[in-house]
Amino acid sequence: MFDFEHPSQRERLHALAAECDPATQDLLSRWELPPGARCLEVGAGAGTLARWLARRCPGGEVTATDTDVRFLAGLRQPGVVVRRHDVRTEEFPPGTFDLVVARSVLCHLRERDAVLTRMVSWLAPGGRIYIEDPSFFPAASSADPVVRRLGAAIVGTLTATLGSDVETWARSFPAPLLGQGLIDVGARVHCATLTSDNTAGTAWRLSVADLLPVMDQRGFLPAAETSAALAHLRRPEFVDVVHAMIAMWGGRPSDRGRERNHGVDEAR
């Protein structure tokens, strides 16, 4: 599933980026980065966010990682380093980065809690971590029975095959960061409206198409229903909200900031 060799994988990643980047960049742009900032994006995918970070911190360095870096090969701009890296098993030295970002990564890892703790340890004093993952709770309450069926099939398939949690993990934010010794912990939710022809709808439709063979194999969505389901998503009148992108963040205290508030900050 979501194999980078799949013909539509590049298109799917770019559609996801077009859907998610504006909200992610809006929040990250509120944080001032130090001169020469060192940034890490885990699971950089198509590299759009890494490019934006590099433009935002000239003179710094953005390390863009993924387990498959074929779509990052074109990241040749100054300040970007591409590295093949498996966040489940490979480390960075403690205190390496001023900003650590991971979007749509931890929800798919069985070891998500342990990985998050290690990622926090990679923060330099004064550094921030930003985690963003999807939750499909909006699909469960959709008035559209096809969307409810697809949402349940996606959740069941990802849980059974990858050990993903696209229901409760992101819905619990920012609780996973509390108790990590961070300050200014906060959370934000963004729900995109899907239509048959916008980027959010395209991303969801391509993701569903990628998952359909496994859904059938695992018994979550019979093959007889698949073509009808995809046709339903292509209807000109299709409009729905099927998932939420939920973000959480926090900062490692600097030497001057250890007495600051350790409560929860809410994005406005």
Rank of each mutant, 00 (worst) to 15 (best):
L75R: 09
D86Y: 01
V62I: 11
P94S: 11
L75E: 08
A64K: 00
L72I: 05
R84Q: 15
E91K: 09
E90T: 03
D98Q: 08
G60T: 09
V81R: 15
E61S: 13
H85E: 02
G95I: 04
D98G: 08
G79V: 09
G79R: 07
F97M: 02
D68S: 11
E91T: 15
E61I: 11
P58Q: 10
V69L: 06
V80N: 04
V87R: 00
E61D: 13
F71H: 13
V69G: 05
L99G: 06
P93I: 07
A64L: 02
V82Q: 03
H85T: 03
V62M: 08
L75C: 08
P93W: 11
E61H: 12
R88Y: 00
G79P: 10
F92T: 02
T96K: 08
V82M: 03
L72K: 09
A64P: 00
E61Y: 04
F71C: 11
G59L: 14
T89H: 07
R56M: 11
R56S: 11
E61K: 10
A64S: 04
P58H: 06
V100Y: 08
C57M: 15
T89A: 05
F71N: 08
G95W: 06
F71K: 10
P94F: 01
G74R: 11
V82K: 03
C57T: 15
E61N: 13
P94Y: 08
F97Y: 09
D98K: 00
V87H: 01
T63K: 05
G79W: 11
V100P: 07
V81F: 10
R84L: 06
G79S: 11
E90D: 05
T89P: 02
F71G: 07
Q77C: 13
L99I: 03
V62R: 05
T63C: 13
D66E: 10
G95M: 05
E91W: 10
G59A: 13
E61V: 12
D86T: 01
G79D: 12
T67S: 08
T96P: 09
R88I: 03
R84N: 07
P58C: 04
R56C: 06
P58Y: 11
H85W: 05
G95L: 04
F97L: 01
